[in-house]
């Protein structure tokens, strides 16, 4: 697989309101190109909304989101996807009635140039594109350990493998940045470990990775940089090791003790 140049993502004072509730409050942070960036926080709402805003499924009420130097605030999710942003969804969605192989092949849809006419005529051009798609799929399936299940219905996969399929499907077209919405939810320790290895590999190929998750130790061990969001506002952002030691972050998660500490 050829290397891609990872995209940079910048959020500048992004705000989103739902009725009277401010879900995202003046959020600013930068994802360095080629890095693995984590987004964590003690409560749910703000982070999920950010994912929707970045990928274009919802429109921000204020602020700018930039992919490299191009503003993508208010741009349709399809256009953002075509600019090189791939994402996974919280609910792992296997495409109904389609095999594991076919799911990955859909991920390669953008590699095709053939329209209706050329597809119907089955000329050498579209046949070549089919061959290339098939070959790329075989390689991806092997890398993600899905070769044996390739011709099973995706919906029949065990949950852990389904998560991996989702990622394989999303990165098939070699996107420049991959956005993952709680990829570790529902996975056990072993599967989470394998997931981390996988994401490091994806990042190694050049793709910028932005992960949102609740499993904090997983995030701190995987990510280069981490941004912490509490009640819709950024409370810390920077190199993972530093953010992990930041007392503000500790306080957000653990609260502050008024009593002294007891020894074991």
């Amino acid at each position: 697989m050829t290397s891609t140049t990872g995209a940079a993502l910048t959020l500048d004072k992004v705000t989103k309101r739902f009725g009277g509730v401010v879900a995202v409050n003046d959020v600013s942070f930068s994802v360095a190109p080629g890095s693995i960036h984590g987004l964590i926080g003690p409560n749910g709402a703000g982070k999920s909304t950010l994912v929707s805003l970045i990928s274009g499924y919802q429109r921000a009420d204020g602020g700018t989101i930039r992919l490299d130097d191009v503003a993508i605030t208010g741009v349709s999710p399809l256009r953002i996807a075509l600019r090189g942003l791939a994402r996974t969804f919280q609910a792992a969605t296997p495409l109904q009635g389609m095999t594991v192989r076919e799911n990955v092949e859909v991920g390669l849809h953008t590699t095709y140039t053939a329209g209706l006419a050329r597809t119907l005529l089955r000329g050498p051009g579209v046949r070549r594109e089919d061959r290339e798609c098939r070959a790329a799929t075989v390689e991806l399936l092997a890398r993600y350990g899905l070769t044996e299940s390739a011709d099973r219905l995706a919906a029949d996969l065990p949950f852990g493998q389904l998560r991996f399929l989702e990622i394989a499907r999303a990165i098939a077209r070699e996107p420049r940045i991959l956005l993952l919405d709680e990829p570790a939810a529902g996975l056990d320790q072993t599967e989470t470990s394998a997931l981390a290895d996988l994401l490091r590999h994806v990042n190694g190929e050049g793709t910028t990775v932005l992960v949102i998750d609740h499993d904090v130790p997983f995030m701190f061990s995987l990510c280069h940089d981490v941004t912490v969001v509490n009640f819709g506002s950024v409370i810390a952002s920077g190199v993972a090791a530093e953010v992990a030691r930041d007392p503000v972050v500790r306080d957000a998660y653990l609260g502050s003790g008024s009593a002294g500490e007891e020894t074991e």
């Binding site: 495409l95 089955r122 579209v126």
Partner: peptide, 27 residues
Amino acid sequence: VLSRSHIGRAWRALATSPDVAVSLGVP
């Protein structure tokens, strides 16, 4: 021919979830 082609796969993808299809760059 269409059902077995990339167009057919894209159709079946959008039949399950247009949101997921869009995220994969499917128009």
